[in-house]
Design a protein around this nucleic acid. Structure first.
Lengths: 213, 213
DNA sequence: TAGATTGTTAATCGATTAACAATC
DNA sequence: TAGATTGTTAATCGATTAACAATC
């Protein structure tokens, strides 16, 4: 078993392919070639085949991919049968937003613990889940064997919170705090900064706007 | 004027550099070399210099970068003096979350119009901003010269909404709907799918977990 | 068998990193 | 001037795309 490094982008695209399969299923389409797939959904056919090739052979030469089959394969690769418990740290505007967003549980990510440093918020009950103080973080995360955390705390607190999460055994962090955090290399961090996304968007817009004038 | 293509990632990193400058300013540090910068914030010194080189020369050989100076330069490059009006389409869980999130206005993005197809929601007032029906979208966006939109609608509605936005003159879309949308190539779309982020995270976690056992 | 499409190797492209002449 | 660090060119790395032999 040699370790082939699978690009993160490939994994992200697998989710896209899964979505495509769902759409095709709804239309009653039974099989599709990588070329048609690319055409329909704005993908690149070679890339589709390459991405899948990391995990095995799912197509039929001369035919393409059986939609049901590929769907199933993608589900298995992405591990969608498993559910994940998630800890949410920080109940400000964004944290509350994440808490009420249904997209997570719909796709197998259940928020099973909530932490906030504000004593006013601690003890509040959301759908049967009680907000806990930061002191309870390590204990609760360990007890519930939670492996994934979403961090929606102010940037100054981010590193401290991350340290505790790591200590508690968290292995993946979705970081909404607009700051870099340092963690051991076996822990995976994904930064999401919506304002930076908007900034990047607006940067390129300026050029388009100038062209319009 | 030849068109040098600036990578999107470079722009994203400029925001990071700006953050670093703010931290350094607070500590009272006046100048810093790209090397120190890289060391401190987990960057690559060559990349820092390369990224900046797209826009000019902001350092002093033998010294490094004057923090105040570079901060100012980054602000200018990113166009942070300008404020942007943003339209929000879709007031579900996520949409409401985006509406209440203060991070946007803090960084110069003001939500100036809200649209939802649900008649129950139309007419509601949020901080003086009234939710409008989808029929009013084109007119309002045009009247207010809004150029950026955040789309937090169900996937089935996404393409239709995008079409209207484009028609209204929107040039940048932050798309939270888990579906690909097709727009003219002068319009920039950035997809944000939080559940896919979690999925990608969890995919790599499975491997770490296996190693732990 | 002929036609089509995969899986995979090879070519290309772009982004990251290294190296170094220019210069403060 | 000597030391340091930039700005920039060149080398490396990784990801995307093209090409094609294998095969349904």
């Amino acid at each position: 078993l040699k370790a082939i490094k699978i690009p993160e982008k490939t994994i992200t695209r697998l989710s896209i392919y899964l979505r495509c399969m769902d759409e095709l299923l709804e239309e009653g389409i039974e099989s599709i070639s990588s070329h048609e797939l690319a055409e329909r959904f704005g993908l690149n056919s070679a890339q589709v085949r390459k991405d899948l090739a990391y995990f095995g052979q799912f197509g039929v030469r001369g035919i393409g991919y059986y939609v049901k089959n590929l769907r199933q394969a993608l589900e298995k690769i992405l591990g969608l049968s498993r559910e994940w418990e998630v800890a949410l740290v920080g109940l400000g505007n964004l944290g509350t937003a994440l808490l009420t967003y249904r997209g997570f549980s719909q796709r197998g990510f259940r928020i099973e613990a909530i932490f906030d440093r504000d004593p006013e918020k601690v003890g509040h009950n959301y759908n049967g889940l009680v907000v806990q103080s930061m002191n309870e973080l390590i204990d609760t995360v360990q007890k519930k064997s939670i492996r994934i955390a979403m961090m929606a705390v102010p940037p100054v607190s981010a590193q401290g919170v991350a340290d505790r999460l790591v200590q508690a055994g968290i292995l993946g962090i979705l970081n909404f705090a607009p700051t870099q955090i340092n963690v051991p290399k076996n822990v995976k961090v994904k930064n999401v900064d919506l304002a930076v996304e908007l900034r990047t968007l607006s940067f390129f817009l300026v050029r388009t706007l100038k062209e319009l004038v």
